[in-house]
């Protein structure tokens, strides 16, 4: 399964990068989201994966009795997911605003800094 997940990470990265190289700003943002997903999955995988062992201490116990999934990557990713929502919404509003001014979605037409 790890191999499959590693390939998934590669696919998400490749797709994200292909999309951020496109001229459409919307595609750029979709690409960023896919890249973010790929990065999250990468961190998750590098913390090693295990089934049915959530990092929650069982009832009636004060410490883990059994093996448990690594909580640090999970905490990192949780933060990353929420932050990336803020980033995405800001980016997409920026696109919307830029579109209102320039009437274009094409990045390559935005080569001057004037009048925005």
């Amino acid at each position: 399964m790890e191999i499959l997940l590693a390939i998934t990470i590669g696919l998400l990265y490749a797709a994200g990068i292909f999309l951020i190289l496109r001229r459409s700003m919307v595609r750029l943002i979709i690409g960023l989201i896919l890249l973010g997903n790929g990065a999250n999955l990468l961190i998750f995988l590098l913390g090693r994966i295990s089934k049915g062992k959530p990092p929650i201490i069982p009832e009636e116990s004060k410490v883990f009795l059994d093996a448990y999934a690594d909580p640090i990557p999970q905490a990192l990713i949780l933060t990353a997911i929420v932050i990336s929502f803020g980033l995405q919404s800001y980016a997409i509003i920026l696109v919307k605003r830029a579109y209102r001014v320039t009437k274009t979605d094409d990045i390559e037409e935005l080569t001057t800094t004037d009048e925005i």
């Binding site: 919404s89 509003i93 919307k96």
Partner: peptide
Amino acid sequence: VIGATLTILFTI
């Protein structure tokens, strides 16, 4: 989280 999310979505 409620405030930020709703502010973003409602404004849009």
